[in-house]
Design a protein around this nucleic acid. Sequence first.
RNA 1: GUGAGUGUAGCUCAAUGGUAGAGUGUCGGAUUGUGGAUCCGAUCGUUGCGGGUUCGAAUCCCGUCACUCACCCCA
Length: 416
Amino acid sequence: MNEIKAPKGTRDIFAPEIQKWHNLENAIHAYYKKFLYQEIRTPIFEHSELFSRGIGSETEIVQKEMYTFSDKSDRSLTLRPENTASVVRAVIENNLFETLSPLRFYYIGSMFRYDKPQKGRYRQFQQFGVEVFADDSPQVDAEVMFSAVDFLKKIGIEAMQLELNSVGCPQCRPDYLQVLRKAARAQESRLCSDCRRKIDGNPLRIFDCKLPACAEVAASLPLISDHLCGECRDHFAAVRETLSWMNVSFQLNPRLVRGLDYYTKTAFEITSGQLGAQNALLGGGRYNNLIQELGGPDMAAIGFAAGMERIILHLEQLEPARPKTLFVAYEDPQWLAHAVQMAQVLREEGYPVYLDYQGKNLKKQFKKADRVAAAFTLILAENEIQSGSVSIKNMVNQEQIKISLKELNEWLKKNY
RNA sequence: GUGAGUGUAGCUCAAUGGUAGAGUGUCGGAUUGUGGAUCCGAUCGUUGCGGGUUCGAAUCCCGUCACUCACCCCA
């Protein structure tokens, strides 16, 4: 069998699951309007350089996970692995600082990463996210986190945890990393080979190692929280205080690291125990230097991105929410024209209507009506046509009545 | 990139190395204006793919691909 299948890590979404996606998308649009966010749609692919400069050329994502290709003019393009860099690019390119206010955006769309698929992780996956520009207030950080938690609660997710950290800024992080490297190197012999490599690369990752020996070493390593500069420390304190005003509970996690280089100060993640190994539902933070690095003004920003497949995994299976359907049946092909016209009229009135063009006899058509879960079947036959009426059978309780066509609309209004 | 498990009918799954099956679904029928239930009948497969061992392979071995889960990383 060499039939063509969906590429590894991609999937088809259809009924009944598609209903969850509609619900989730609608909820996002509705919820974020309340905070004056506006939707932004950016291209699915960008110049590769946007991501290597934006996300960081040394990150795992840029190093090994990008879908990069050359187009026919030899431009290096990349399917977006995340959307923040694109949004920043769009805001700069279109001078949105000058024209839109407030500078708050949300997006919904596909991202692409060449990862090995497993539960909750795909090569093409959907994220929604928000970005707030031009405000360095700690209250904005808190509001963004509140909205994330509140939104997830409103769509029915309870079992989640907000984890919070400050990853410092260009003033304090380099100093901290030096201290950390030094401390790690002092205990290098006790670390696994993986962690030894991390010392020079990204020493923060040592905190993630699950080996007991490494965890023991990690417990003794200095924490960023003790090495923040005055500004970062004040900002972080204000963020936590605001969260408590807002009644948002959180867990401080001094080991929380983000996989993208652009984060400064606030970093956060919402995790869930129900997801298996890929337990991050949503992650984000502040990125006060990215806009300038991508050629824009010196402007603060904060945002997050959420994995929609992972959210969908948490949503209860819905009843197939098919709207109540009207089925138009005709006893003999000679009445097909009447049936078609009736369907047109009913659809014009707003009802979902189905009829079976290959219906050979009523028995078959009723079977079809049953399969499409029709609520009512409208029957046209010689009897009805001649008297200018229609028979209506309630498919649930099997009651059947005959009414004149003039009364049909009225009847539907009452009984549909 | 690394590791483990699983690949049999559209779907869920059986079959000690000896003729590939069941349930479900689909289609047809149980007399001509009526579905679901029941009954009867039909349809359904290169056992993921390619090699090897064997008189004989769905079954054992090797390879490969896909799916699932985990490592890694992340949403």
